[in-house]
Nucleic acid binder design. Structure first.
Length: 366
DNA sequence: AAAACGGGGGC
DNA sequence: GCCCCAGTTTT
């Protein structure tokens, strides 16, 4: 009897989506797409991939690019360390691998940002090597197919799935196989409401046999999301806005924002923004702010933003009643004045992108 | 082994 | 609103 993997491949040939990165075998393009596709859905990635490949059509072009510009092209996609690592990876490819994305597992794994999944995906899709790529889709498809009730992250389960994938990928074209399993997970064997009726593997699917497609893989318990407020400042002078760069590590590392402080929801915003204002004055070489000059903080706009582990409520305040002038020269390289027109040249987190859009839009009316 | 890291799409 | 995001690196 025919092995089920052949039915899977047949299904894939008939049902595969025409995605931009499926029109090439260029390992660099595959690397870009797989990096973007980490934790990010296909429909979100498509426009980013097109723009990125137009801007950086070759690994050499990316390697030569300014990292700030690369991150700017990543704006809104999230997990910005991916962009920086991809940029570093391109430089490593040029400097150490003669400009070619490595085709050996050992070498490609040396590239920053390339873990087990991405390595397997690039090697199988671009070079047709039998190295399985196991992502969330694959894990779900295989856990169901094999009828695994244990948590999928359990080492024994991962070994079983890896072994199965390793044996299956030998039977067909590795590149087609990798994409076929993931496509099945994306289109048929979905997290909820799996379309078993049209699944090419239904005849031999253990979870379907057990009637447990809906409970496999086992759900993991979710952690509570911390709440935090962010107070940001809209400080305008001579048509320019004061902006700052976030710290080089941690959340939204290196991204631009309005000068801001994060504080606990139970605390008072002025007790946090006044010290920040003080700092800005001191940095500008001005005498410290006297109590009598302490400004009112007029709220201009608020946006809520959800991360996986924290919920932000960001409010932008305009200080009113300042009797002192901020100095133009800023000692810190992490803060600068930016003209309204140039704001869009910086890389902003989504939440600030939304806020700026509102603020600049309103400003026109004023 | 667990936590950190963004953002959006599906329902 | 709550669910999904195995992906890589850091701690």
């Amino acid at each position: 009897m025919e092995h089920p993997v052949h039915k899977l491949l047949e299904w894939y040939q008939r049902n595969r989506r025409d995605l931009p990165w499926r029109r090439t075998k260029d390992a660099y393009a595959i690397l870009v797409s797989e990096t973007m596709l980490q934790q990010t859905q296909v429909d979100t990635v498509i426009p980013y991939f097109r723009r990125f490949m137009t801007e950086y059509p070759t690994v050499g072009a990316l390697a030569r690019a300014d990292q700030e510009a690369v991150v700017k092209h990543w704006q809104g996609l999230g997990y910005y360390s991916r962009a920086r690592r991809l940029h570093s990876a391109a430089q490593m490819v040029v400097d150490e691998f003669d400009g070619r994305v490595p085709s050996s597992l050992e070498q490609i794994r040396q590239l920053p940002g390339v873990g087990a999944y991405t390595a397997g995906a690039v090697l199988s899709i671009a070079y047709d090597l039998p190295t399985p790529a196991i992502d969330g889709n694959v894990l779900r498809v295989m856990a169901r197919y094999l009828g695994v009730r244990e948590p999928v992250r359990q080492a024994s389960v991962l070994c079983l799935i890896e072994d199965t994938m390793q044996s299956w990928i030998q039977l067909v074209s590795p590149g087609e196989f990798t994409q076929a399993v993931m496509e099945l997970g994306a289109l048929v064997c979905t997290p909820r409401n799996a379309a078993c009726l049209v699944c090419p593997l239904v005849d031999s699917c253990y979870a379907h046999d057990l009637g447990e497609v809906d409970v496999i893989p086992a759900k993991t318990e979710k952690k509570a999301r911390r709440k935090a407020n962010v107070g940001a400042l809209w400080i305008e002078k001579n048509g320019s806005i004061l902006v700052e760069r976030r710290k080089p590590s941690g959340l939204l590392a290196g991204m631009w924002q309005l000068p801001a402080v994060e504080y606990n929801g139970s605390e008072d915003v002025t007790s946090h923004l006044h010290p920040l204002l003080e700092e800005l004055y001191t940095e500008g070489g001005q005498p410290s702010v006297e109590e009598s000059t302490a400004p009112y903080l007029v709220p201009m706009a608020t946006e809520r933003h959800l991360f996986s582990h924290v919920e932000w409520s960001v409010t932008v305040y305009r200080p009113v009643g300042l009797t002192l002038d901020l100095g133009v020269a800023q000692a810190s390289t992490d803060r600068m004045w930016c003209s309204l027109a140039d704001l869009e040249k910086l890389a902003w987190p989504r939440v600030y992108e939304k806020l700026l859009e509102r603020l600049i839009g309103e400003r026109v009316k004023i």
